Simulated scan of single mutants.
Amino acid sequence: MLVWERPEPPDRPTPAPLSRERIVRAAIGLADADGLDAVSLRKVAAALDVGPMRLYGYIDTKEELLDLMVDAVHAEIRPTGDGWREVLRSLADTTRQAARRHEWLADLIGGRPQLGPNTLAGGEAVLAAMAGVDLDTVVPAVAAVNAYVIGAVRREITERRAERASGMDQEQWQVAFGPYLERTFATGRFPALAAVVRDGPHLDADETFRTGLDFVLDGIGARITK
């Protein structure tokens, strides 16, 4: 029986009452602070001031805990709007915002199918907004938006982590590596890349995300209006 359907153990009088919700909240707090490496049943139990064995019955494995954590964050991903385009844009935006609040989500999103109630509710909202559109279009359209968001979010979070690790922001990085690129481009071996770096648009993270999403949504719109 999946964790979503398995009843919790009966309440026991104890100085530290437990529930799956409390366990998941503690795990998310650890992951938000120090990443997924900080999450284990032992560390979660310590954060709750209970012994690790107390967690069993509520959660059998770390994989179940990770599934519960992802589904809990999906409560923050609530697609809204009128019409398929607004709802798909809302799906993309709220997913990105959730990943920016919980960077560890970028390491888990897009993994095995998520079947928790919050995830299913979000999927229901998206599909309901696309009612009337042929399912042969709906399924790949939603998959395309999800694929774009997953890739964009993972790249953005990876860049944020690299920036923190290096101690350099984008401007400092450009100062450090700009001369190397100028010397390389001066050889004439990479004219297309040189043109992009020198003359192309330099978008910030928000603009990059919105522009790429517009390309995806425009393509879906062209298919729907055929």
Rank of each mutant, 00 (worst) to 15 (best):
P13M: 03
L135P: 06
L18W: 09
D93M: 06
A176I: 09
G29Q: 04
E86D: 14
R155C: 09
G200K: 13
G212S: 11
A27R: 01
E103G: 05
L105G: 03
D214H: 00
P117A: 02
T158L: 11
A165L: 06
M1A: 12
R25I: 04
E63P: 11
L68Y: 05
E5L: 07
T158K: 10
Y58R: 01
Q97Y: 15
P52S: 09
R198L: 10
A125F: 00
P10K: 12
A46H: 12
R89H: 10
R22M: 04
K43L: 13
A152L: 00
I220N: 05
D214A: 09
T187K: 05
P179E: 01
A186I: 04
A165E: 02
G57S: 02
V145W: 11
E76R: 09
P13C: 06
A26T: 08
W84A: 14
L91R: 05
R100T: 15
R189W: 09
D204E: 05
A26H: 01
P179D: 08
R25F: 10
D214V: 13
L66K: 07
E63S: 15
A26P: 02
L193A: 13
G167L: 11
D67G: 11
E182K: 13
R100N: 10
K43T: 08
G57M: 07
